[in-house]
Design a protein around this nucleic acid. Structure first.
Length: 521
RNA sequence: CGGGGCGUGGCGCAGCCCGGUAGCGCACCUGCUUUGGGAGCAGGGUGUCGGAGGUUCAAAUCCUCUCGCCCCGACCA
């Protein structure tokens, strides 16, 4: 038969089975005081079998769990350059699906893709004072070309407002040129002191949208439109519930008039900013001289927005859905949606199973991203663990018994529910099953967030909450920078955003608008 | 950027205190038996001990510097 070689996501050599008993024991001792918010009550009941043996439990050391799972599932690896990472095919596959789904939404809202250069002259960066103050310390600089020292050094883009502002000033003359709605998919670099795979790396991949509008009203509409695009994308395709809304002045993007974000809650109870949308007002228009003639022939500065999400979203997926057995990937972005594990004992079985697997592939066709794991050197049990660790949403076991029944045994990754699916039903049942997994992941993340959202009316109550717990705390809020600073000093929690959708808090807020506070990544 | 920890075959580690021919498990290769929750036996290959200097007859081991990773804090997307 034709072996399904060339699956880009094939696992490499397995991992050591030896459990580091001693090391684990030490870790547990150290971790026992830790907040156990990320721990599900049932985890203790692992009864007889540890399905995946060599992964640190989330409740033992969440950071360690994260790093291990990212590397063992082969999402990414460290590079020789400090703070940079190599995104491996399985991780890049996630990114490609995110790109595909988000790009479609960006285009559907009228934007076009373009590409601006990575090198930004220092003089351009310096034009906007807040902007340069925010980013200069984080810039990597190019000072030489070949063997010649450059007259002016270039920053490797930390973000592209400057270069894009420069170009827009040349492209925009009339109100008829507006709005300009451009997005770019690119890399960016920020010289970070502390880095974590995906969450904060020196170089990262992202998209950055940059738009210019004739009016402030239109500009603000764009800001909120894109925030909503992000919310919908992250909730629908990544199955991560988020709160979206404006940030405080303290958390604002360098050079922006107002910053909006979507905020997600990770399983260790820390918040993660998953996307941002900025109203840049006319700051950049003024310093880059981006003007247009309006219908009355009057010269005006444009109003601008910028918005972005990055490969950090991969980290968000890992930390929102992952459990002690490894990743749990949302089917919409899973590089492999269903893995087929063939099983046989005798040669006759093998032939029959192989033939049946071929029919299964045919039946599924393009309805799901299927991979037949027919690698000979691993046992079925080994493959089960491997694919669970890598988060494949559905496993299809096919052995002699299934061939006899003309069915496959499906097992969901999220809850291990088993179901025999007759081959005749597979084409319709599998896509539905994948949608069920997608929804279940969202629901469980939502339930987790609700269980980890508190409510506080005073600094004392906020302190009391963070003394023993993590998660979000909703606080009735009217812009109060002093209180915000106090909360940060006393609890380490920052104002994540003031949710636009206040419905989840109404029951307890008595009509008062709340802001969300949390310790954050 | 401060405090702590760790760098030894592909991975996980022992050896370091007390200097003396570099080891174990897994993985990998070959063969046979296996395959419904990380298979078994037999044989085999694998190391500039993170890097640079120093001390010494001799350094994985002692000293100095340096690079990287992890954790906790401060700072920032």
């Amino acid at each position: 038969m034709s072996r399904s070689r060339g699956c880009p996501y094939t696992a490499a050599p397995g991992r050591a089975r030896a459990v580091r008993r001693r090391a684990r024991a030490v870790q547990r001792a150290h971790a026992s005081q830790r907040s156990s918010i990320g721990e599900r009550p049932v985890t203790e009941e692992k009864s007889k079998k540890q399905f995946v043996e060599d992964l640190t439990d989330q409740s033992d050391d969440f950071s360690r769990w994260y790093t291990e799972v990212v590397r063992k599932a082969q999402l990414a690896d460290y590079s020789p350059v400090r703070g940079c990472m190599v995104i491996r095919p399985y991780g890049y596959g996630l990114w490609e699906h995110m790109q595909r789904l988000l790009d479609a939404r960006i285009k559907a809202t009228g934007h076009q893709n373009a590409y601006f250069p990575m090198l930004i002259p220092e003089s351009l960066l310096q034009l906007e004072a807040d902007h340069v103050e925010g980013f200069a310390p984080q810039c990597a600089w190019v000072t030489e070309g070949g063997s010649e020292k450059l007259e002016e050094r270039f920053a490797i883009r930390p973000t592209s407002e400057a270069i894009i502002g420069h170009m827009y000033s040349r492209w925009i003359e009339s109100y008829r040129d507006l709005p300009v709605l451009i997005n770019q998919w690119s890399n960016a670099m920020r010289w970070e002191k502390v880095t974590r795979l995906f969450l904060r790396t020196a170089e990262f991949l992202w998209q950055e949208g940059h738009t210019a509008h004739a009016s402030a009203r239109e500009c603000q509409e764009e800001v909120l439109r894109m925030l909503e695009v992000y919310r919908d994308f992250v909730e629908t395709d990544l199955a991560i519930p988020v709160h979206g809304g404006p940030k405080s002045e303290a958390e604002r993007f360098a050079g922006a008039e107002m910053t909006y974000s979507i905020e997600a809650l990770m399983r260790d109870g820390k918040a993660l900013q998953a996307g941002t949308s900025h109203n840049l007002g006319q700051h950049f228009a003024k310093v880059f001289d981006i003007t247009f003639q309006d219908e009355q022939g009057k010269r005006q500065h444009v109003h601008q927005t910028s918005w972005g999400v990055s490969t950090r979203l991969i980290g968000a997926v890992v930390m929102t859905h992952g459990d002690d057995q490894g990743l749990r990937l949302p089917p919409h972005i899973a590089p492999v949606q269903a893995v087929v594990v063939p099983i046989w004992r005798k040669d006759e079985d093998r032939a029959a199973v192989t033939q049946f697997v071929g029919r299964v592939k045919e039946a599924v066709g393009e309805r799901a991203r299927l991979w037949v794991d027919d690698r000979d050197q691993y046992t079925p049990g080994w493959k089960y663990n491997e694919h669970e660790m890598r988060g494949v949403p559905v496993r299809l076991e096919i052995g002699p018994r299934d061939v006899a029944n003309r069915a496959v045994m499906s097992v969901r990754r999220d809850n291990r529910a088993k179901e025999a699916i007759p081959i005749a039903d597979l084409a319709t049942r599998l896509p539905v099953l994948l949608e069920e997994v997608q929804r279940a992941l969202f629901q469980s993340a939502l339930a987790f967030r609700e269980a980890n959202t508190g409510y506080a009316n005073s600094i004392e109550e906020i302190e009391a909450h963070f003394a023993s717990k993590r998660g979000f705390v909703a606080v009735p809020w009217e812009n109060d920078p002093a209180l915000e600073t106090l909360i940060k000093e006393r609890t380490g929690a920052t104002l994540r955003c003031v949710p636009i959708d206040q419905a989840p808090f109404e029951a307890r807020s008595q009509g008062r608008r709340v802001a969300l506070f949390a310790r954050a990544y």
